[in-house]
């Protein structure tokens, strides 16, 4: 029997997974857009983004636009690879469940 793949715990977190999925489709995104799409609070979103950044899955660029701070997030190659691997693992696990 083939060994079942492990799910990456950093990617598996619901909000972190939502963030990676969103960032996979765009070149870059503002903090406010991510907050609007995920419906999360500033504090929780900031904490989860920091975890993803520490894991090397996303990169952040902070700048000032019209004297207001703006944080732009983009997915790194490592993040894209981690998400792809996670999706493959999910499908394998679900496939295994269907096959019984």
């Amino acid at each position: 029997m083939p060994e079942l793949p492990e799910l990456n715990p950093i990617v598996h977190g619901k909000l972190r997974l939502a963030l990676l999925s969103l960032l996979a489709t765009v070149e870059e995104a503002e903090f406010t857009w991510l907050r609007e799409k995920t419906g999360s609070t500033d504090g929780n979103l900031g904490a989860q983004l920091l975890k993803l950044e520490e894991a090397g899955y996303i990169a952040v660029e902070k700048k000032f636009v019209q004297r207001k701070p703006q944080s732009l997030y983009r997915m790194t190659e490592a993040g894209r690879a981690a998400l792809t691997k996670y999706v493959q693992a999910l499908k394998t696990l679900l496939g295994g469940a269907i096959e019984g």
Partner: peptide
Amino acid sequence: MNEQISNQELNERLTLIESMMQEGRR
């Protein structure tokens, strides 16, 4: 961690990925 995850949760994760990607592509 896999033992604690139900198939329903796995399916929810797939749905979440799909819906978030749709949002990003709008």
